[in-house]
Amino acid sequence: MPVTDHHTGELLARAQKGNSEALGSLYDRYYTGVFHYLYYRVGDVHLAEDLASEVFFRMVHRLSDFQPRATSLQAWLFQVARNMVIDHYRKNNNRVNVELHEDVAALDGDPTQAAEQRLTHEQLTRALNGLMPDQRDVIILRFIIGMSLAQTGQILHKSEDAVKGLQRRGLLELRTHMREWKVEDEKLG
């Protein structure tokens, strides 16, 4: 789980002074989380990779302006990712892509098992995109990325109480949508 700690602060400070190794470490630290967030927002692995690449290029360009006092790097990255998704949908008439891909890396191995797994995160993506925006982001950040209430609140600019509320209502909505997409109780847990 990505965390903001003193080590991140040190990496950031070194990167801001031009240390590319530190920048690479920040990339390694946050790439997977950003990618997962983007995947569950756009439903397409390749598009999520493209957007993730753009997020980190923006980080490079804005690195010198970044203010650690104002927000954490993690929060900033996810805010950028969030804005890019919104922009993407605007340019594509709000269309959510949930497509089948034969080359999803996690599905190597048993084809039967792969089909079931793929179905699961396809269903999850579809159901997530039926939620209200804030609920959807809370579910992704809390249960897929694994962020704490505080981290989630920082990204969404909401109090922890507000995140708690969005979390419960989001789960209720998510369950409703997954049932509608005929995801059996067994798969829900």
Partner: peptide
């Protein structure tokens, strides 16, 4: 269940 879902990985 959401937390334990096998999430896709980037290439």
């Amino acid at each position: 269940a959401v937390h334990s879902t096998v999430h896709p990985q980037a290439n």
